[in-house]
Amino acid sequence: MALKRGRGVAAINYPTGMNLGGDPTHALVHSTPTGNFMVSLSSVDLGQGMRQVVAQICAETIGVPVERVIVDAADTDTGPLCMGTFASRGTHRIGNAVIQAAREARQVMLEVAAEALEVDAGDLETDGEGNIQVKGAPARAISITDAALAAHFRQGRAISGRGIFLVPRSYPEAATGAMKPATCYAHACTVAEVEVDDETGEVAVLSLKNVFEVGRAVNPKLVEQQLVGGAWMGMSHALYETTEPYYPSREHGPTDFNMYLMPGPGDVPRIETVVLERPAPDGPYGAKGTGEMCANPHIPAIANAIFDAVGVRIDTLPITPERILRALQERSRRAAA
């Protein structure tokens, strides 16, 4: 009986969003009288950073500092429609809707500034720091605050924009079954190293080395955070998570999330992650969905590493010590027969 080491690899293509009955997200952007920009959405931030990413996308498109964008999200009674933050669709769908709304708001903002400065809107640009200026003559400028005040109190114009991003429903072709279930695809590859105790069936994950191709990391720190947390969740799916781990019957099972087993801080392996960016033509500034894929490639990689370590192939998740031991027993029983 011994501790056996193994290494496994897995690569995945991951779709952004899914084929709903039409998949829209609607965004509205408007300026306050002092030139802050409100983004109204009914999309939910679950802690993944959706608000931050939306604020960045809006700020970049309008040409203002990100601190001037306020994201008001997740009142589904009053907000514009969003199908939801799931299927890794958030950044992609919401981001595209926000770009469209922000472009329209920017155009109105430039027209307001043009009237105030008595120039042509086409000759104006933003400096990204809160001013609108004449191209080539930055001294002729108006602050965005003054432009917003002028719009509200002198010109009677609403600096606002509407955006909707719709992925139409895809129907399978009758002859081939071919369809378009998602938009752009992200990619990932993981190499897992494990140590398996062939006496107890316990698996320790030693390292997870990952490469993720995410289109564009709109906020690189948030992407990294999501990928590190996701590696742990992937390991958790592979080895721990089930509502009935070792119990003979349902009555002995857990009754709430307290008894839902996931790895603790002492089980965390060495995690190394490399992010590659190949911008998607249909993504907001090239971004693809990173969400759920952040916990995907680790699962087959760990299953493969266990096979490499002890030679049994477990295809039921989670790969519990019991399943490994039963497989090892079965193998020796067959070898004896």
Partner: peptide
């Protein structure tokens, strides 16, 4: 020591590594 100190605390998001 750090792992021991936080092992009574559950986090379902970060994967613990950033906390460590």
């Amino acid at each position: 020591d750090v792992i021991e100190a936080i092992s009574g605390n559950i986090c379902r998001c970060t994967g613990y590594e950033p906390i460590i």
